[in-house]
Amino acid sequence: MANKLSNDEIQAGLRALPGWSLVEGRIEKVFSFGTYADGVAFAVKVAMAAEKADHHPDSLEILWGKVKVAYVTHSAGGVTKLDLEQAAKVDTLA
């Protein structure tokens, strides 16, 4: 099981992840798209990457022209290295 990171460790990890922030105990980012369909396509890519990694977003919210992705590891009680790794992977999909 992954260990919960301290706030300092999370903030250090977020420095390498532009646009991601710690909000209410989880890391999240909003991605913008020109169309609803582009956002949906991105969300599907995120879902497939999550399945492959066996580490899923806490939230994957599709809005018009935007998709919000959030990670936290519930079994660890907070943000872990796995969450930061998946956030970095999501950035490559955008």
Rank of each mutant, 00 (worst) to 15 (best):
A2N: 13
A2Y: 10
N3M: 09
S6F: 01
D8L: 05
D8W: 01
E9W: 02
E9T: 01
I10Y: 01
A12S: 12
A12R: 09
G13T: 02
L14T: 03
L14R: 03
L14P: 02
R15W: 09
A16E: 06
L17V: 04
G19L: 00
S21L: 11
L22K: 08
G25N: 11
R26V: 00
R26F: 06
R26G: 08
R26P: 07
E28K: 09
E28Y: 02
E28H: 09
E28I: 00
F31I: 06
S32M: 03
S32V: 10
S32R: 13
F33D: 06
F33Y: 14
G34S: 15
T35P: 03
T35N: 02
A37H: 06
G39R: 09
G39E: 13
A41R: 11
F42K: 10
F42T: 00
A43N: 06
V44P: 09
K45H: 01
K45P: 00
K45T: 00
K45E: 05
A49S: 07
A50T: 00
E51P: 12
E51I: 04
E51H: 14
E51A: 15
K52N: 06
A53M: 11
A53L: 07
D54M: 11
H56D: 09
H56S: 10
P57T: 02
D58G: 01
D58F: 04
S59P: 00
I62E: 12
I62F: 02
I62C: 05
I62R: 03
I62T: 08
I62M: 07
L63S: 12
L63D: 06
G65F: 14
G65I: 09
K66N: 08
K66E: 15
K66S: 10
V67G: 10
V67E: 07
V67M: 13
K68W: 04
A70V: 04
A70I: 05
A70W: 08
T73D: 15
T73I: 05
A76V: 09
G78W: 05
G78V: 03
V79W: 07
V79R: 15
T80C: 12
T80P: 02
T80H: 12
K81N: 02
D83M: 07
D83P: 05
Q86L: 11
Q86F: 11
A87I: 03
A87R: 11
V90Q: 07
D91N: 15
D91Y: 10
D91P: 07
T92N: 10
L93F: 05
L93T: 03
L93G: 08
